[in-house]
Simulated assay, not measured.
Amino acid sequence: MKNNIYIYIFTAALVSLIIRALPLTLIRNQIKNKFIRSFLYYVPYVTLAVMTFPAITEATQCNWAGYAALAVGIILSLFGAGLLPVAAACCAIVFVIELFF
């Protein structure tokens, strides 16, 4: 039974089912607690940030290019630029910096 892949697949499926089904069965009414509602609202954004930020610097040949692109992206988005201009500017920054380094 050692290293039986079906046990691993079953365990992963069971854990995934419990994580998804348990809140649906336990929470029947609308959540009224302000803290919990705020926490649940920001969970997807935090998860995306945790997955994205390390990849920004590791995807480039020079880490400084990733940091510069991150800074430019943050600044442009603070000024209200859309997704396409921010992404294009970040790509251009990485391209220019990696040309010289």
Rank of each mutant, 00 (worst) to 15 (best):
G73H: 00
A69G: 00
L84E: 08
Q61I: 12
F95P: 03
T60R: 00
I36P: 02
F39Q: 01
R28S: 14
C90D: 00
A87Q: 04
A59G: 11
A55Y: 12
I19G: 07
I75C: 06
F79L: 08
F101N: 10
L40F: 14
S38Y: 09
V43D: 08
R28K: 15
I27W: 12
E58C: 02
E58V: 05
C91F: 11
I5F: 14
K34P: 06
I19P: 04
Y67T: 01
Q30I: 13
T25F: 12
L24I: 07
Y67C: 01
I9Q: 03
I7Y: 15
F39M: 05
G80V: 05
F79S: 04
L17P: 05
L17M: 15
R37C: 08
L99H: 06
T52S: 07
M1W: 13
R28V: 13
T60N: 03
P23I: 01
L99A: 05
L22H: 02
N3L: 07
Q30A: 10
K34H: 13
T47G: 14
E98W: 10
E58Y: 11
I75H: 04
A92W: 01
K2P: 05
Y45T: 12
F35H: 07
A12C: 10
C90H: 00
A81T: 15
Y42W: 15
I75Y: 11
V15G: 03
P54I: 04
V96H: 04
T11Y: 04
L78F: 09
F100K: 08
P44G: 06
